[in-house]
Computed example of a mutant assay.
Amino acid sequence: MIKLVAHRRVHLYKSHSKKVEIEFRLVEGILKSNKEKILFLSNLPDDVFTPEQIAGIYKNRWEIESFFRFIKQELNFKHYFSRKWNGIQVMTYIILIASIMLLAYIKLNKLKGYKIPKIKFCNELQNQILKNIVVHCGGDPNKMIAFKT
């Protein structure tokens, strides 16, 4: 556990003592286990994130980094398509939904790894979407099997 003891706004400096324009938040805490001082530096806005939330984010940093490693390596996610907060949130939710669906598919089918299960999942999802399109258009989804061979 950590006890937060200070929260203040600070500026960083470039070479030759030139102040950086961006104002940062410095959250200072003390670890309860060994009384070690710990500092968190953030540019998150005051009106959205409390000092306790910033400390919590840093505490969960490893899980956050592991998640982004997973989505980059296993889901081939490279970058956000928007720099606006709403766009980032929407993309994050889409990624979360896709990763949950993939992980559920892997578990339900007792599969291992991510590469081959991801391909199988995408193929099955595509086939299901095509079947739904055929049914919606008044066709018979059983006739789709003829197109696979």
Rank of each mutant, 00 (worst) to 15 (best):
K3A: 13
L4F: 12
V5F: 03
H7Y: 15
R8C: 05
R9Y: 07
V10R: 13
H11N: 07
Y13D: 02
S15N: 03
H16P: 01
H16V: 03
S17Y: 14
S17A: 15
S17V: 13
E21N: 09
F24G: 01
L26A: 06
V27D: 02
V27I: 12
G29N: 04
K32P: 14
S33C: 14
S33H: 14
K37Q: 02
L39H: 05
L39Y: 09
F40N: 00
L41I: 15
N43W: 12
L44R: 09
L44Q: 08
L44I: 05
D47H: 13
F49S: 08
F49L: 10
P51F: 03
E52M: 04
Q53A: 09
A55V: 11
A55R: 10
G56M: 07
N60W: 01
N60V: 01
N60K: 08
R61H: 04
W62Y: 06
E63P: 00
E65P: 08
F68V: 05
R69M: 01
F70M: 06
F70L: 12
K72R: 03
L75T: 02
L75K: 02
L75I: 05
N76Q: 07
N76V: 05
K78Y: 06
H79S: 09
F81Y: 13
F81T: 12
S82N: 11
R83E: 12
W85E: 11
N86M: 13
G87S: 14
G87R: 15
T92M: 11
L96M: 06
A98P: 05
Y105F: 15
Y105E: 01
L108H: 08
L108A: 10
N109G: 06
N109F: 04
L111N: 02
K115D: 15
K115C: 13
I116G: 01
P117H: 12
F121P: 03
C122E: 12
N127D: 14
N127Q: 14
Q128I: 03
K131L: 00
K131R: 14
V135G: 02
G138C: 10
G138V: 02
G139H: 04
D140Q: 07
D140W: 09
D140E: 10
D140P: 02
N142T: 13
K143N: 14
M144C: 06
M144T: 09
I145F: 08
I145N: 13
